[in-house]
Design a protein around this nucleic acid. Structure first.
Length: 107
DNA sequence: ACGATGACTCTTC
DNA sequence: GGAAGAGCCATCG
């Protein structure tokens, strides 16, 4: 399916996220060329288990800096982010503006 | 085929 | 700054 291509792009972009940095669904979707396909990005991340090799989907969050999903998963991602040096508080990014990474800016 | 739902985002109040 | 409504595409009942 052509849809898988979209997934691959999302995964590839997510893999390019530097350590200690996070990005949002909208940023990825925009970088691919689909600003309103944020939901599809979320689905792609949810299907990252199908990606080879797997992607650090824990670096992908919502635009408001919250870890979406169920606590069982979000909690684990929070620990991973904290382990990478990202300040997270109650499933929410603290210095989001500071650690936010934009694939289009690619600093 | 139709309606409802969802790891989202944006604009407006 | 927080809450509400509308838009988006794909999957499920």
């Amino acid at each position: 399916m052509n849809q898988d291509l979209f997934f691959e792009q999302v995964w590839d972009l997510t893999r390019e996220i530097p350590k200690g940095r996070v990005t949002s669904y909208g940023a990825i979707a925009k970088a691919i060329g689909a600003p309103n396909l944020s939901r599809m990005v979320a689905r792609a991340i949810g299907a990252c288990g199908n990606a080879r090799p797997p992607v650090p989907y824990h670096r992908v969050i919502s635009s408001n800096g919250t870890l979406s999903g169920d606590p069982s998963s979000t909690q684990k991602r929070q620990q991973l982010l904290e382990h990478e040096g990202v300040e997270v508080r109650n499933l929410k990014i603290q210095n989001l503006k500071k650690i936010f990474w934009d694939p289009l800016n690619d600093l």
